[in-house]
Design a protein around this nucleic acid. Structure first.
Lengths: 268, 268
DNA sequence: CAGTGGTCTAGACCACTGG
DNA sequence: CAGTGGTCTAGACCACTGC
């Protein structure tokens, strides 16, 4: 009925099982509740691409049958995945693989808002790809991205403008192995969010990210690109983005002009 | 058994009830699931101070009996409150009213980390209260804090230093009505986080906050207080903190020196 | 050991979606 | 209308805490 990858095909976890994995090398607790095991199985299917982005995954009842557990257990697993923005539940319709294309969460990772607060009236950013070239990872870049020094990387530089005013200057580094065929033309041709392009074209889904923020002054090159004076303070935003399994997939260094915009953060 | 406040004493919500509230003026959905109603009741008890900070609330079974619902329903209500950091669950012990004093979440709202990443080795900040005076709310302050212009407000200015280096300059505004008796002496006498002091001394618990972040250059006064040159870019962090019910309770304007520290943010 | 929260189940019914 | 996720219940057992 449901052909699964060879490894743990329909490995129905025995109820109250320990999920053992033996007395492995790692110092893991060596125990996890059933719903965590189910969650891990679903995660595997997501990684393996068994269900494509924006497609529906099987219903809770189906999954319960597949894994030989109750619906409530599957539900709890899905609940967590939905809370992590990996899945999207829609009552009456089903559960879907989350995407960076949905209107509601578009630019989920971009926290810069106009002072007016009205994102709609401002409209989408004008994007300009300055550069897109293949290089080799420096020691610093390699370390952050989990690569080896000298590994192929793709480097992109672009400027985002709002209402005609250049506001963001970004440098991106991507692992060359996973982004074969990405060119400046492809980036320019596309309209939606870049992360959506990564999903559809390269099957790479960014799941979470960390940012380190500082205040800096621009160098002369940066001044020219943003049309500002060297006395203009800027927000430096260094972001590391991760796919499934906390695998780093992108390093992004942004300079944000905060004259008419601000970086919003919610603490809770 | 458990004497409740007069209002909605043991208002056992009828199962599957609509919670009606009539065809009110507001355009609320006019329906909420049982566990949301329970959540609201628990929230009321928290606001009313029925359970003090760091104290245990009744067990799930007790609450289920009180509200005449199943344990699972109470559990779901508590789950959400715990997710919002209002409650803290501890297996085998009970559920507790969350505090800003717990080691794990201390400085939950302070996102500035040393470049070394090691908060421990850096040790706690040295605090210096520059000023603490009673004034009247300007139109701007009043608007943000939900007060009327001219209402009494308490204004505090302080500097935080790490390893002897002044790093943060903060101005705070607090509603005078809720913070009677707060003086520079009291602030200086205290050691723990300021938000913990607010809880124990004034019964004000900050639940969430919003921050607007910009890059700025300091004026001459700020330069003097932070021992920096006017060419040093700083992070401007404007924070509005809220108590229960999204009631604004504090406005805080901070200037962060990001030479040896960075503002950390996790996106997900 | 009793009491707490945490997991799991099975079954009922509700609310929403789309044919 | 059937199928989906969402809520609610009742009861069993597990894991952790502290006496």
């Amino acid at each position: 009925m449901h052909s699964l990858p060879p490894s743990s095909a329909d490995s129905a976890p025995s109820a109250h099982a320990d999920a053992g994995l033996g007395s492995g090398v790692s110092a893991t607790p060596a125990f996890s509740p059933l719903y965590q095991q189910i969650k891990a199985l679903i995660l595997q299917s997501l990684q393996a691409g068994e269900w494509k982005p924006s497609a529906a995954i099987p219903s809770e009842m189906d999954l319960a049958a597949r894994y030989k557990v109750s619906q409530g257990t599957v539900r709890k697993a899905i609940d967590e995945l939905a809370a992590e923005n990996l899945l999207l539940r829609r009552q009456g319709k089903g559960t879907f693989v989350a995407t960076h294309s949905e209107r509601q969460v578009q630019y989920r990772f971009l926290r810069l808002l106009p002072d007016s607060g009205d994102v709609q009236s401002e409209g989408p950013a004008q994007r300009q790809i300055i550069d897109c070239k293949r290089t080799r990872a420096s020691a610093e870049i390699a370390k952050i991205m989990g690569l080896r020094q000298g590994d192929a990387v793709l480097q992109v530089r672009r400027v985002l403008a709002f209402s005609g005013t250049p506001t963001i200057l970004e440098d991106l580094w991507l692992p060359g192995a996973r982004f074969k065929g990405l060119t400046a033309e492809k980036l320019r041709a596309d309209n939606g969010p870049m992360y959506a392009l990564f999903e559809t074209e390269f099957g790479v889904r960014m799941v979470r990210a960390d940012e380190k923020i500082r205040a800096v002054l621009p160098d002369t090159e940066q001044c020219a690109l943003l049309h500002i004076s060297p006395q203009t303070p800027l927000l430096s935003v260094e972001r590391t983005s991760y796919t499934y399994n906390d695998e780093p997939m992108e390093l992004r260094r942004g300079l944000y002009l905060t004259e008419t915009h601000y970086y919003r953060n919610a603490l809770s």
